[in-house]
Every structure is written in structure tokens, then in C-alpha cells.
Amino acid sequence: MIVTISLNGKKITEDISADMTLYQFVREHGCYSVKCGCETTNCGLCTVFLNDKPVLSCAVLAARADGQKVETLEGLQKEAEEFGRFIADQGAEQCGFCNPGMIMNAIALFRETADPTDEEIRRYLAGNLCRCSGYEGQLRGIHEFMKYKKEGGASWAK
């Protein structure tokens, strides 16, 4: 089956098997920030943006992304790097394994919600498994980043 997918701004046309997941597709094209920790949609490590919405790429067939736009952290470097500093400053990246999924969902939060409550933040991060930090560091990092945005930082943010 031939698909054409815009991956991080680059159009890729490829013959794929019908059962190939979007996770497998992006990994085969060098997007190693996308990880798979469970294959059951429970960890959030495989989060990518499909047409600007976060999806779990282990649960989406690559064929469903035909003609669509897919973004990973590799394509969102400026946003990811700027916010990632705030997570690191709060000690919330102990092993770092969960960071790509956390950052993808935090970016979705920032794009969709101007001034989220703690409950909204927790809802966005709920599907991200982190065994090291207990999530409080991520919550503090998000609050610090939002304060930074309000003070005129984060040139990419709306």
C-alpha cells in the first residue's frame, strides 16, 4: 500500500505493509524520540502530533496517516528545547525516558489552553508513564514555563 505522509515537514511516499503502525513508520524514518514502552496505549512514550493533535502512534496504523501531517520532537526542536529546560530545572527528567511523550503532551497543552488549571495539566499528562519523578516536577516545570510565557518568553507560543 502506497502512502504519502508529511513527516516533520518532509513529504515521504512509501510502499508500506497494511499492518505497519505509525510508530514503526516514524522510527524507520529516524524519529528516535518516539519510543514504545508498552504497545498497549498506556505509557504515552509514542506520542506524536497527527494534524496538530497528540495521538499514540503505537495505536494508529500508518495507513491512517496517508495524506496527513505528522510531527515528532525532531520537528518541534525549538518548542521542545525551550520547554525542556524548565522540566530539567525542576529535576523532573531523572532518567529522561518519558520526556519525549511528556514534552509532546505539554506542547499540546500550551497550544490549546492559555491558562490551564492543575487539573487540566494533570489531565494532559495522565497518559504518560513516569516511574522516577512522581509528576510533581513536571507540574512545577509547567507552572514555571507558563510564568515565563506570560512575562514575554516563549517566542513560539501563541
Rank of each mutant, 00 (worst) to 15 (best):
I5F: 01
N8S: 01
K10H: 00
I12Q: 00
Q24L: 06
F25R: 03
F25D: 03
V26W: 03
V26D: 04
R27W: 10
R27D: 01
R27C: 10
H29E: 01
H29C: 03
Y32F: 14
K35E: 14
T40L: 08
C43K: 07
G44L: 05
L45Y: 05
T47Q: 03
N51D: 15
V55R: 05
V55Y: 01
L56I: 08
S57V: 11
S57A: 14
C58R: 04
V60A: 01
R64Q: 14
D66I: 04
G67N: 02
E71H: 12
E71S: 12
G84I: 07
G84M: 10
A88Q: 10
Q90S: 14
A92V: 08
E93Y: 08
C95H: 11
G96W: 09
C98K: 11
C98Y: 12
I103W: 00
M104F: 07
F110V: 09
R111D: 14
P116E: 12
E119Y: 01
E120Q: 15
E120P: 02
I121W: 09
R123N: 13
R123C: 03
L125G: 00
G127E: 10
N128L: 11
C130E: 12
Y135P: 09
Q138M: 15
L139M: 15
R140Q: 14
E144G: 03
K147M: 02
K149D: 03
A154Y: 01
S155K: 11
